[in-house]
C-alpha cells in the first residue's frame, strides 16, 4: 500500500509543519517515507510544495510522478490547482478556500472556484476563519491537517492525532491543547461536508 501526497502553499504558511506531523506518524507506524521539501529562495513568499510519499514497501523516487498523487493538501486554493497534473483520477484535493494575494495578476476568484469545484473530489474550508473564530489563529494549518486526516488512509486518524500530541508536546501543553482542538475542528468540518 502507498500514499503519495503533495502539500502546497505559499512560503511561510506552514506546510512543513503539516509534513512533519504526517511524517512523524508514519515513522511511528513503521512506514517507509520520503519527503522532498523546498528550502531557499522560494520560501520568501513564493509558491512552495512538499512531495510526501508513504508506503509499506520500498520507495525510490523523492518526487511523485504525474498522475500518481493520491492527495493534494493545500493552504491556498490556486496553489492546490498548480499540482493538478500530478493528481490521480480518483485522488482528493483538500484545500483552504482563503486566497493569498501577493501577486498583481491573481486569477479572478469566481473562475478559480468554479474550476476547483468542477473537479470530482474536492473538500474546501475557510480554515483561517475557522481557526480565528475558535481562538486558534496560529493553527490554521492543523485545521487543514484535520480535514485531510480521513483521506490519508495509510495512517489512521488516531495515529495522526497522537503525532500532533508528540510534535507540539515538545513545545508546550498549551500548544498541544490548541492544536488538538484545531485538528478536531478540521475533522468535524470534513465529516459534515460529506
Amino acid at each position: 500500500m502507498k500514499k503519495d501526497i503533495i502539500l502546497a502553499g505559499v512560503g511561510g504558511q506552514g506546510i512543513l509543519t503539516i509534513a512533519t506531523i504526517i511524517a512523524d506518524a508514519a515513522t511511528a507506524a513503521g512506514l517507509k517515507l520520503k519527503q522532498a521539501e523546498v528550502h531557499g529562495m522560494s520560501q520568501r513568499g513564493g509558491d512552495v510544495q512538499s512531495n510526501l510519499r508513504l508506503s509499506t514497501g520500498d520507495i525510490y523516487s523523492d518526487l511523485i510522478k504525474k498522475g500518481d498523487a493520491d492527495l493534494i493538501i493545500s493552504m491556498e486554493p490556486m496553489e492546490a490547482l498548480r499540482y493538478l497534473p500530478y493528481l490521480a483520477g480518483d485522488g482528493w484535493i483538500v484545500t483552504s478556500s482563503h486566497t493569498f494575494r501577493n501577486i498583481p495578476d491573481y486569477p479572478e476568484e469566481d473562475a478559480l472556484f468554479q474550476e476547483l469545484g468542477a473537479l470530482p473530489h474536492v473538500a474546501t474550508l475557510p480554515i483561517e476563519d475557522v481557526a480565528k473564530d475558535n481562538g486558534l489563529p496560529k493553527s490554521a494549518n492543523v485545521v487543514l491537517l484535520g480535514m485531510a486526516a480521513k483521506y490519508i488512509e495509510i495512517l489512521s486518524v488516531d495515529q495522526l492525532r497522537q503525532s500532533v500530541v508528540r510534535i507540539f508536546g515538545a513545545k508546550s501543553e498549551k500548544m498541544v491543547e490548541a492544536n488538538l482542538k484545531a485538528f478536531e475542528l478540521g475533522l468535524a468540518a470534513v465529516n459534515s461536508l460529506s
Partner: peptide, 20 residues
C-alpha cells in the same frame, strides 16, 4: 507513457518569491 488524469489548471499564475 504517463497516465495523466488532469491537464494543467486554467486559473493559475506564477508566484515568484518576493522581499518580505
Amino acid at each position: 507513457a504517463a497516465p495523466q488524469s488532469f491537464s494543467s489548471a486554467r486559473n493559475l499564475m506564477p508566484r515568484p518569491p518576493a522581499l518580505c
